[in-house]
């Protein structure tokens, strides 16, 4: 009984972190799906989202706002606006001028952008770990056996539900809306879409903005869940989310969700049953295995190399 509870608890831990990875992974996968490049600065966009949310929360606290839903809503909106404009600006400044060149060039440009943003936040906010207030505390306790008690915190529930809402809205947007249809068209054949009168530049910008907005949501959620943020924490999260995107099949949105969940659960199971020391070994080992045996990922479609 205790073993089962322990397993379920680790599963909850893994799913929580996995849903957050999935939110960040969307940004990687959408950009790859549409222009075939990997936006390595995406982890930094997520980090900036977390910082903006923290600044907004601190600002509201100084103004004397105490109603929690209002604080969260305003923090979320601020983070989304700042991150989205950042995502948009990064695309305009660093990727659009080099689009269509050799595929290494946008990649290097992306890595440069990532280093720039990291150091920018370093300078602007300092390099220390900053505590993030725990706004959502408490949770449900159930199923105790021996000394072990399983718990599901309100914060974890918030992360699940928010992820679920974001994913549903995104799927609806991609499958139903006019812009979503244009997104799909551009991802299938950018040249043809252009000929048919779709403003491809606008669609590409929209992709960056959507990915950045979801990363900002993840930034706020994970900032509260973990409890502290620092300018470097986007880097590892970005790598993990990238792994999730590749795992699920880069370019596929359901794949990013699946990849995130698998990665999160495998991490928590490794720490739970083996040792925390092997957590990253397992997650990046998984990435190598997938790349060796199923390079298109779990849900990715085999496709002809775009030239």
């Amino acid at each position: 009984m205790q073993d089962l509870l322990y397993f379920s608890q680790q599963l909850i831990n893994g799913l929580t972190i996995g849903s957050a990875y999935a939110l960040i992974a969307i940004g990687y996968t959408m950009v790859y799906g549409i222009i075939g490049m990997i936006n390595f600065a995406h982890g930094e966009i997520y980090m900036i989202g977390a910082y903006t949310a923290l600044l907004a929360i601190t600002g509201l606290a100084t103004l004397g706002v105490t109603w929690l839903p209002l604080i969260l809503l305003i923090a979320l909106i601020c983070a989304m606006i700042v991150s989205s404009s950042m995502g948009w600006a990064v695309e305009r400044v660093a990727y659009r001028p080099v689009r269509g060149r050799h595929r290494l060039i946008p990649l290097i440009s992306a890595i440069g952008m990532s280093i720039f943003l990291q150091n920018y936040v370093h300078l602007a906010q300092g390099s220390r770990n900053i505590g993030f207030p725990a706004l959502i505390e408490g949770g449900f306790q159930f199923g105790s056996s021996g000394a072990f008690q399983m718990s599901l915190s309100y914060m974890q529930i918030t992360i699940f539900i928010t992820t679920l809402i974001c994913m549903t809205l995104l799927s609806l947007f991609i499958s139903r809306s006019r812009t979503g249809r244009a997104c799909r068209a551009v991802s299938q054949d950018i040249g043809m879409a252009n000929l048919l009168g779709i403003d491809t530049n606008r669609i590409i910008s929209a992709t960056f903005v959507i990915g950045a907005a979801l990363a900002a949501v993840a930034g706020l959620l994970l900032g509260m869940y973990y409890g502290s943020i620092d300018p470097l924490f986007g880097f590892i999260a970005g790598l993990k989310a990238f792994t999730a995107a590749v795992l699920g099949g880069i370019g596929s949105i359901p794949g990013a969700m699946l990849g995130g969940l698998i990665l999160g659960v495998s991490e928590s199971m490794t720490s739970g049953y083996l040792s925390g020391e092997y957590k990253d070994v397992v997650s990046f080992g998984l990435l190598i295995l997938i790349l060796l045996f199923k390079p298109t990922g779990l849900l990715g479609k085999p496709e002809v190399e775009k030239i």
């Binding site: 008690q149 720490s271 925390g276």
Partner: peptide
Amino acid sequence: FEGITAGDKDFSSLITKLKQAD
């Protein structure tokens, strides 16, 4: 007796393990 990774932020698995080990 276990190591973690410096710079990590999510310790939920470790804490579950500590609870299990009582």
